[in-house]
Computed example of a mutant assay.
Amino acid sequence: MADPPAASPSFPPSRKPARIDGRHLRSERTRRLIVEAYVALVRENNQMPTAVQIAERAGYSVRSIFERFPDLHAIRVTATDYAISEAKTLSALRDADADRQTRIRSQVETRARGCERWLPLWRVLNTNSSDSLELQHRIKIIRQLVVMRIEEMFKPELAALAEPERKKTLIALEAVMDFESWARMIEMFGLSHEEACTVWIRAIDRLLPPTPVS
């Protein structure tokens, strides 16, 4: 009698790699380009762009924009989230353990770059923001991020103050480094970037208490 045929080796069922939805990727790319177009137009014109302007800059139709965003307000919210995410990356802490003057200059230079880059969007963000809880929430987040960075950069000096003096000093520091503070120095008084930084450095140095001796 012939031997029975050998059983075929048993292998686990192969797993097909997850298929990437090309349409989804294209849609996400389109959304990103629309938001980038919005931000670019805000920087150029210092005002909220129209749907037609955004479409022309992004290279899409107005219909394509409203297929991905319900209205211009939604684009403004998304653009703000985009700015917050980028700002977190670009303003990562550095020199936090350095001497007082190095920390002050580092903080000022980082904040100045942020103000120059995002001042137009900040102004647009605040336009009619009282009508939107979403925008109010994001404005609060942006201010909180600025305050948190100030607290980290000047931790030794602020820790030496008792409440409520510490809180008052923190409020004053945040006010000094506000977007519109930078704008007034540049737009109203005509200061150069370096001159405006020098004003901030001197103001911060005066507001901070003496640095504790290690």
Results as ranks from 00 to 15, higher is better:
184 R>I: 08
35 V>L: 15
2 A>D: 14
103 R>T: 11
161 L>M: 13
176 V>N: 00
8 S>T: 15
170 L>A: 03
211 T>L: 08
188 M>R: 15
156 P>C: 08
19 R>V: 15
41 L>T: 11
9 P>H: 04
123 R>K: 14
13 P>T: 09
33 L>K: 15
102 T>H: 03
85 S>W: 07
191 L>E: 08
101 Q>M: 12
6 A>M: 10
112 A>C: 09
16 K>V: 12
69 F>G: 10
52 V>H: 02
52 V>L: 15
120 P>R: 06
100 R>S: 09
4 P>M: 02
71 D>G: 03
65 I>A: 06
127 T>E: 11
211 T>C: 09
154 F>S: 01
122 W>F: 13
137 H>T: 10
190 G>A: 08
41 L>H: 05
14 S>R: 02
8 S>G: 00
160 A>I: 04
153 M>G: 01
163 E>M: 08
139 I>D: 05
22 G>C: 03
97 D>M: 06
123 R>S: 06
68 R>G: 01
127 T>V: 12
26 R>T: 06
15 R>L: 14
35 V>P: 06
179 F>Q: 02
210 P>T: 04
75 I>E: 00
175 A>M: 10
10 S>L: 12
85 S>T: 15
85 S>R: 08
137 H>M: 06
80 T>R: 14
179 F>N: 00
188 M>A: 10
87 A>R: 14
175 A>C: 02
17 P>N: 09
103 R>V: 06
82 Y>F: 15
47 Q>M: 02
110 T>G: 11
132 S>C: 12
93 L>A: 11
107 Q>C: 14
100 R>I: 05
184 R>Y: 04
156 P>D: 02
32 R>V: 10
18 A>C: 04
192 S>M: 10
110 T>C: 08
180 E>H: 14
43 R>Y: 02
157 E>Y: 13
92 A>G: 05
204 I>S: 04
201 I>L: 00
144 Q>K: 13
64 S>C: 04
125 L>W: 12
23 R>F: 08
28 E>N: 15
55 A>C: 07
12 P>Y: 09
106 S>F: 00
36 E>R: 13
147 V>P: 08
20 I>S: 03
17 P>Y: 03
49 P>A: 07
